[in-house]
């Protein structure tokens, strides 16, 4: 699809979210729910006492009972429908011919871990902090956006072999 048209659709979905719920879109928040649930199941007392996990399970609330968890389940379905419509459904590991499949997987885990860690530090990822934050003109949104994309440009040279 033409990227500007895809951007308009994405923007309208984001606007609808603000109109209906008063909040934007998100992704890392749902992943946090998964982590909190896992920790709580394995080590309940520890999770309750933690300053990080504790606030999501206080008063017996279930962290999976959250708006963002259901929204991300929708992303899975929406992505699948789009892939099916455009004939892009296939099991594969996408990587540059300059690197092996194994290296790509290792880099993906490493990059994911950094992004996951950073999303907690920065109170949201590209969706929740940067995109939704910018839509409401929040200073935090603009700063996070510049920090994410600016840093990626600075480090792009060192990782070029992985992509081109």
């Amino acid at each position: 699809m033409n990227p500007y048209l895809a951007g308009v659709i994405l923007g309208l979905v984001l606007l609808l979210s603000f109109y209906l719920t008063g909040r934007g879109l998100g992704a890392s928040g749902a992943m946090k729910s998964v982590v909190v649930t896992t920790v709580e199941t394995v080590a309940h007392t520890k999770a309750e006492e933690s300053g990080f996990y504790g606030k999501y399970i206080a008063n017996g609330q279930n962290p999976m009972n959250s708006w963002l968890v259901f929204q991300v389940l929708g992303v899975v379905v929406g992505g699948f429908i789009s892939g099916a419509v455009s004939g892009r459904l296939s099991l594969k590991t996408e990587h540059s011919p300059n690197i092996t499949k194994k290296r790509r997987i290792v880099m993906a885990i490493l990059g994911g871990a950094l992004f996951g860690f950073g999303s907690q530090f920065g109170r949201g990822c590209t969706s929740g902090a940067a995109l939704s934050g910018m839509a409401t003109l929040s200073l935090a949104g603009f700063v996070t956006m510049v920090a994410i994309f600016g840093t990626a440009y600075v480090f792009a040279y060192f990782f070029r072999k992985n992509w081109i």
Binding site: M107, G111, G112, F115, G118, G122, T144, A152
Partner: peptide, 18 residues
């Protein structure tokens, strides 16, 4: 700090969470 760490994660991993 969070944004900078996410930026490195982006160029290393090629995705963001969404």
């Amino acid at each position: 700090i969070g944004g900078v760490i996410m930026g490195i994660g982006f160029i290393v991993g090629g995705f963001c969470p969404g």
